[in-house]
Design a binder for these strands. Structure first.
Length: 685
DNA sequence: CCTCATATCC
């Protein structure tokens, strides 16, 4: 129409711009912009607002700001358009800055402004400013507004503050189905599952409107209660009442995933005809949580073949999978995607990149991403602290924690977990004890069982076995399996038989269905030479029909992952690998620095046979393969599913010196950087 | 112009 030269009236232009905003039609929107400039030269407040909204919704915040800046006259809609634009584009910090700008410029934020900023604060989990905004809303009398109430309640929910959210709910003069949905979600997401179900019963009793999102929250509560039958019941209820729309199907995939029912999730997923990004993301996340990491990568390929563009949430899920697989090649590929689509704007993407690089053994890149991140939120700091911990850089973790405090961020439980973990893996005993104390005294955080397990690990790893045992006895909670595992692991390293037996007994008593426990216990008896006890544990395990995961190591060369089990001969280059291993052994013997430590052999066999078994450990095969296949001087990165054995640890040190190679090994617990004959773990492995 | 679903640190 405008191409034909017809003069567009402003009413039409605004209407078309609104449609462009809704449908993300940037090109058409820009044409309208151009023709407005051409025919109207000066446009009024309505056109300006519509243009700003169009640009914001098409992801062009810079352009939206320019329009806003050039507008002579501004009303509340103009300010709010920019504010909500920031929020929709995930630029939450900028939204906060803009909100303060509104206040300073003398413009009084209205209900809509409060709604936008509260939603940003919820996503940032910023309780501090959140309360400030809430107080402002009350002062202005906005708190009686239904939508303000709903949004503020949601903000408190996302900040994990049930009590405030609850209070807002009860004080609201009127409630709609979104209020009820939000309060149910609040209970479901903050471990008050029974309360969530009670609220839903009230909704049903009152004959109120039920939509698919409310059911979604109810389902989350069921999954929190691990009540599969109730979950299935509600699943059927939604089908009967015709509530099963795409959003709910996506939620159901998610909930089944949380309950470990991957098959159920797949059934729902496959029945969806028009799968959207969320469907694919939910299915990928389900696989990540249930350890089906390779399946994640194939789903990602299928998704792209299905012409669904992955958004940042989908890519973050995939990054978690590549991190778990230690696949630096795949991880970098996803990083490339994010760069090309300029999606590295929010903190969560940076966090998962930092985590991915750390878990793939490349902590230097983690630091690069971290340093470049514009706004660093708590999760990003925590991720970096944890990354340093994994790589035995405890001092760096502590330094980061200090910087984070200086920035005014409030650490949460997970931050302290990362910090304690870092201390334990670097032998920083006093520091670790100090932080356990601090988390309660300064931050009022009640330690979780995981924190206590970390401290037991900290004391045990440093050889303070009696102190560790005393600590367990003095804990205000019943020791969990993680606590006994930590003690048992330390007993194995420091060869403490007495406590080892205590821990072993407790462990099998508390969790008789976990095969990993039997392996741990059997290993400790083996290291003591108590072969009868080893036999007894194996029998008990077999009686329960449990099987252990075989030890396995893998290395990524080019675009392929090469996996090895102990004494593996299935690899195509097997002959070359064993020739390489023989050569290494000969050279080590000539040096005279290596003596096999057969205490790490877990079978009752002759001494010579023990040595033979050590030589066939899976990580040695992977290292030999790495030496053959990768260019001289480059780092070799190995991943293995179990903890690295003491003898292989020595062996790898010597190989790193002999071949002048950096060898990075990720075991079940942490990273080891071998260089020039020593390891970054300094013996705290 | 605005609120309720999917993801990141255990």
């Amino acid at each position: 129409m405008h191409k034909a030269g017809t003069l567009m009236n402003s009413y039409t232009a605004v209407g078309v711009l609104q449609a462009c905003a809704e449908l993300s039609l940037l090109k058409l929107g820009m044409e309208i912009h151009a023709s407005l400039l051409k025919y109207n030269r000066e446009f009024g407040i309505y056109e300006g607002n519509a243009l700003a909204v169009m640009y914001a919704k098409c992801g062009r915040m810079g352009e939206a700001l320019r329009i806003f800046g050039e507008m002579g006259e501004k009303d509340n809609v103009s300010w709010n358009s920019v504010l909500s634009g920031y929020v929709q584009n995930g630029l939450y910090e900028e939204a906060i800055g803009f909100f303060y700008e509104m206040l300073e410029s003398g413009f009084k934020p209205d209900q809509v402004s409060v709604i936008s900023i509260a939603s940003a604060l919820g996503r940032l989990r910023n309780l501090l400013i959140g309360r400030e905004v809430h107080a402002y809303a009350i002062k202005q009398g906005f708190d009686s507004d239904l939508q303000v109430g709903n949004t503020v309640m949601d903000m408190y929910t996302k900040c994990f503050h049930v009590i405030y959210a609850e209070r807002v709910f009860h004080q609201m003069p009127a409630k709609d189905y979104i209020s009820w949905t939000t309060v149910i979600a609040c209970y479901a997401q903050n471990s008050c599952h029974m309360k969530a179900l009670e609220m839903f019963r009230e909704v049903q009793k009152g004959g109120m409107e039920v939509d698919s999102m409310m059911i979604g929250s109810v389902l989350q509560a069921c999954s929190g209660l691990e009540c599969l039958s109730l979950l299935k019941q509600i699943h059927c209820y939604t089908i009967r009442h015709g509530l099963l729309d795409l959003v709910l199907q996506n939620t159901i995939i998610d909930v089944y995933g949380e309950c470990g029912k991957v098959d159920h999730a797949f059934q729902v997923f496959e029945r969806i005809e028009n799968k959207d990004v969320v469907s694919w993301t939910s299915m990928i996340t389900c696989c990540v949580h249930n350890g089906l990491l390779n399946k994640c990568l194939s789903l990602f390929t299928d998704m792209r073949n299905d012409n669904v563009e992955p958004d940042s949430v989908a890519l973050v899920s995939i990054l978690a999978a590549t991190a778990g697989l230690s696949s630096l090649v795949k991880g970098k590929e996803i990083h490339g995607h994010l760069i090309r689509r300029s999606l590295i704007t929010d903190g969560s993407v940076s966090s998962s990149l930092v985590d991915m690089y750390a878990q793939c053994g490349n902590i230097e890149n983690s630091f690069k991403i971290f340093d470049r991140a514009r706004c660093k939120d708590l999760v990003l700091w925590t991720t970096m602290i944890s990354a340093c911990g994994m790589h035995g850089r405890g001092k760096d973790s502590i330094e980061l924690f200090r910087e984070m405090q200086e920035m005014g961020l409030i650490p949460d439980h997970i931050t302290f977990l990362a910090l304690l973990y870092a201390c334990s893996h670097s032998g920083l005993v006093n520091e670790g004890k100090h932080y356990l104390e601090t988390m309660t005294s300064e931050y009022g955080l009640e330690p979780w069982p995981e924190h206590y397990a970390c401290v037991v690990d900290l004391l045990g790893r440093s050889g303070r076995m009696e102190e560790a045992y005393k600590f367990i006895k003095s804990m205000p909670i019943e020791p969990t399996t993680a606590v006994w595992c930590a003690l048992l692991g330390a007993c194995r390293v420091h060869l403490n038989h007495k406590l080892g037996e205590v821990a072993a007994e407790k462990l099998l008593e508390l969790e008789p269905e976990n095969p990993g426990n039997y392996v741990l216990v059997s290993n400790i008896f083996a290291s003591m030479g108590k072969w009868k006890d080893v036999e007894m544990v194996r029998t008990r395990m077999q009686e329960r029909g449990l099987r252990k995961d075989p030890a396995c190591s893998w290395i990524e060369v080019g675009n392929k992952v090469h996996a090895f089990v102990a004494r593996d001969t299935s690899h195509a280059d097997s002959v070359a690998i064993y020739t390489m291993l023989d050569e290494i052994m000969q050279r080590l013997e000539m040096d005279g620095g290596y003596v096999e430590d057969t205490r790490f052999v877990l079978h009752d066999v002759r001494e010579e046979e023990k040595k033979r078994l050590l030589h066939g450990h899976s990580e040695r095969l992977a290292i030999a393969f790495g030496l053959i296949q990768t260019p001289e001087g480059t780092a070799i990165r190995i991943t293995k599913n179990l903890r690295v054995c003491g003898d292989c640890h020595e062996f790898t040190k010597l190989v790193s010196k002999l071949f002048d190679r950096e060898i990075v090994v990720r075991d079940a617990n942490r990273f080891h950087h071998f260089r020039g004959g020593s390891c970054s773990c300094n013996g705290f492995w």
